[in-house]
Write a protein that binds this DNA or RNA. Structure first.
Lengths: 148, 148
DNA sequence: CACTAATAATTAGCGCGCGAACCAAACTGA
DNA sequence: TCAGTTTGGTTCGCGCGCTAATTATTAGTG
């Protein structure tokens, strides 16, 4: 077996990054049937939820809030516009800025999507304490890596 | 603001799933420069590390170990074969099974990749205790969701 | 006022990640 | 033996997620 001597053995299941990676894959899989009735992907859901909280913002701001890049978001918001859930308009004072506004239809969807977080949390089955701990750890990782 | 009365307000940053989602995006971003010298993507790295631990397995087994689907893995292992890192052969006793074996070149890469986990862990900056806790929580989520 | 630099978004190209449909090899049983 | 089923992989189609390059608009400079 280990004929290579001094080299450290790394096993995938022991890597915390792999644990996160697998958990996220499982989560997006689990969200699919929950979001299918709303005709949303998980990323589209993230964008809509962000805009439900505050809309009338430009793409750059949306990118900062979702922690995604503009090239990722451009096709996403185009699809959401095609579904009639939001408006994409250039700002009056600055033609470069793209202002995103939730439509009436988008607000209707917000009410439909109201129970999604509870359903999801229920499937995940974490205690409130574990949930808080998990958020804290993930936030720590995200912040540490964002600071290059 | 909240004129809609009884509806619960959900904020994206408070969703544990979003915290995981963002952390994983940050992680794959952080892995990119680390894996670029090895000419590997994160998923390719996951596959190689899994096969470094034990090769000579079929695609189905690899799928179970990586928690990824066969349709995801087929193009990945083809690219790894094209790079000369592994062999794809049909099993002698069962033509359906695709047996994956790490090549000499693939073993050489293993030695090169030896320090990647340490470098990554260092950037993430978790204490060993937090790291264990995070693995446990993610494992719990993955298991709960895998059980439908 | 021209000319450059900075900024906001988009496009191009690549590699996942997955559900659905498909195909061929292997097993099953009357 | 030979339909019928199961099994292991592949193919197809779609939607991210990102880097690099491009376009268009605005701001800044002499």
């Amino acid at each position: 077996m280990g004929e290579t001597g001094g080299m450290k053995v790394h096993r995938m299941p022991e890597q915390p990054c792999f644990a996160l990676y697998s958990a996220v894959n499982a989560i997006t899989r689990a969200y699919r049937p929950l979001l299918q009735p709303l005709d949303l992907t998980y990323t589209q859901y993230v964008v809509m939820m962000t805009l439900w909280e505050q809309d009338g913002v430009d793409l750059r701001t949306l990118a900062e809030r979702t922690l995604l890049d503009p090239p990722t978001l451009t096709p996403v918001v185009k699809r959401l516009e095609a579904k009639g859930l939001l408006d994409r308009r250039r700002a009056d004072d600055d033609e470069r800025r793209l202002v995103l506004t939730v439509t009436e239809e988008g607000r209707r969807l917000q009410r439909e999507a109201d129970e999604v977080p509870e359903k999801m949390l229920c499937q995940v089955g974490l205690t409130p304490a574990d949930e808080r701990k998990l958020r804290a750890l993930c936030g720590q990782i995200t912040d540490a890596l964002a600071a290059h």
